[in-house]
Every structure is written in C-alpha cells, then in structure tokens.
C-alpha cells in the first residue's frame, strides 16, 4: 500500500488533464492505495468553481471531484493565490476582498502552497497532471 498525492495544473475544460487525473485517482483507490491530497494549482484551480455549468451531456468535473472527495474522504486543496486571481473564493476571502459572493464548491478547500510541499513529504509518490 502506497501513499499518493496529485498536483493538477490542467485547465478543466480546455485540456484533458483533469479527466486523466480523475481516472488515475480512481485507479489508485481501486488498487487499495491511499490518496494523501489532491492539490490544484495554476489554471487547475478553475475546477473548484461551483458555478461551472457544463452542458448536461458533458462530464461535470467539479461535481465529479466533489463526489469522489465525499465518498472516499479525499482532501481537495486549492492554492489560494492561484484561486483568488481567478475568482475562486470562499466566504472569508469574499468578505476580505469586498466581493459579492463566494464561488468555491464546498468539497474544495483554499489553502497555501505549503500544503503541496507538506503532501510531498508525506507521500511516496507525487504525480502531476498538466
């Protein structure tokens, strides 16, 4: 049994990376391994926007990650610096920055880049999807 963390930088609806990362994550869990943390960075953070609204016949990546996180108790961590720039905010950040509303899906959590390093140190493998 091994511990994995993922670094995801792929733009959710422009690249295949997020779809690949979802499949990889499921395969890791099916093999009986552990996911320590999934860290979203750069354009990858866009998937945490709860207002993402793809057509009904396309996979909703935000909901797919959220479902997996809830069912399998996985940490979905979003880089706060990358997120704020791109309009992904929680209630506290919305208030701090005088924005009208929060936009992050509740399955995801805003945090610092240190969470990525910490995940690396606590994992056997880091796999990047960009």
């Amino acid at each position: 049994m091994a511990t994995f963390s993922l670094l995801i930088t792929a733009n959710p609806y422009s690249n295949q990376g997020q779809y690949s990362a979802l499949k990889f994550t499921k395969a890791v869990l099916e093999a009986g391994h552990i996911i320590k943390r999934i860290f979203f960075y750069a354009d990858g953070v866009l998937v945490a926007n709860r207002l993402n609204c793809p057509p009904a016949d396309e996979l909703n990546l935000t909901k797919s990650w959220a479902k997996l996180a809830i069912e399998k108790d996985i940490e979905l961590t979003v880089c706060v610096t990358a997120a704020l720039k791109r309009g992904i905010v929680n209630q506290a950040e919305a208030e701090r920055n005088a924005l009208t509303s929060e936009s992050i899906d509740p399955a995801f959590e805003l945090s610092g880049l240190g969470q990525l390093t910490e995940a690396m140190l606590a994992s056997d493998r880091l796999v990047t999807f960009g």
């Binding site: 890791v28 493998r125 880091l126």
Partner: peptide, 19 residues
C-alpha cells in the same frame, strides 16, 4: 490501462510529467 499506470508509478522510483 489505468491500473497498470498506477503500478508503473510505483515500479519506478518517481514520475515526472514532462509538460
């Protein structure tokens, strides 16, 4: 397949995604 992909990341000592 994806199961083997996961296995490969463990067979090797690490992975680097060449972007």
């Amino acid at each position: 397949n994806y199961a083997k992909f996961v296995e490969l990341t463990l067979t090797f000592d690490k992975s680097v995604t060449w972007l």
